[in-house]
Design a protein around this nucleic acid. Sequence first.
DNA 1: TTCCGACAGTGGGGTCGCAAT
DNA 2: ATTGCGACCCCACTATCGGAA
Length: 333
Amino acid sequence: MPGARDFGRSCALMVDMRPMLATPADPDRGLPKDGARWAYEVKWDGWRVLTEIHDGAVRLWSRSEREITPAFPELESLASVHPDVLLDGEIVILADGVPNFTALADRIHLTDRRRASALAAKAPATLIAFDVLRMSGVDLTGRPWRERRAALEELPVQASPIYEDVDVLLAATQEQGLEGVVAKRRSSVYRPGARSSDWRKLAHRRVQSVVIGGWRPEVNDRNQIGALLIGVWSSPDPDHPGSRQLRFAGRMGSGLAAAGPQADLRRLLTPLKLDASPFDDAVPRLDSKGATWVEPRIVVDVRHLGRTENGRLRQPVFRGIRADLEPEDVRYE
DNA sequence: TTCCGACAGTGGGGTCGCAAT
DNA sequence: ATTGCGACCCCACTATCGGAA
């Protein structure tokens, strides 16, 4: 272990500060079912952060190696955890016991200490630690996960709980509205900056049928569909189910690049062209820029991570055209 | 030979700051 | 004063390339 005897400030340079990343699991095959070789934990919906605690000071680093310490003054109390330790973990803001990702958005550009403290008082952030990369000047990244996990459990920090039954954890996280599950091979070393198959993630995604109300071309190729403008019918008046309005639910571009959907969507949407937006609520100009409006007749399936407070779908991904559904059938849930 | 990992470029929701309008 | 744009955070998907298996 070269340099392990050096307990000075230069210890920080011994460890690559980029976090190890998980590979997305194939949704059809799921995660490996082997609690003896794999450990399972909750996939926390927050910001990935490396936390360096050294000589009574705390410093936080984002995934892109940007220092974000000033945005989280409430985490300064971690300074007393250990004289020298580098933790990997997730910063979350809990609302009703569940991480609220959008609550973190306020902190993103934060450099002003007083504003940060005000936000911390209103909605404090929590560090959930799940790995130890350095302790007392010793680089632990070459040690197996189980050894690093044992070191983590010696520390007075909130550690992400470990489970042995993946099916139980998948069911529990789904039921509690948590984002998903991460599986980690117990024998695996920590590879900074690498997207390794020793860590695998599976997010609970919902499938929702939506109606196409318009589309926008790709930025560098006007002949390709870059994004669909999607909507869902809602009934403003429950007493008159016949009265319905098409609510804008955001843009969707991921998953459209394949040739099949491109050709099919073009063929279906071309004869439906409209001069004005078919949505009953106002589509923000940022979204409608360059849009071609169409009659809301075509239904597609979207995989997503839930709805935002604005009624838009989070991380929407195109799944396929639903020729079997009428647009009138499209409702939330 | 095939397959995997790394990379870059497309698309998404959201917030903020700055420069052009 | 308003608007557009890029930089950040979190992503999925596609295409490409080079090296490992």
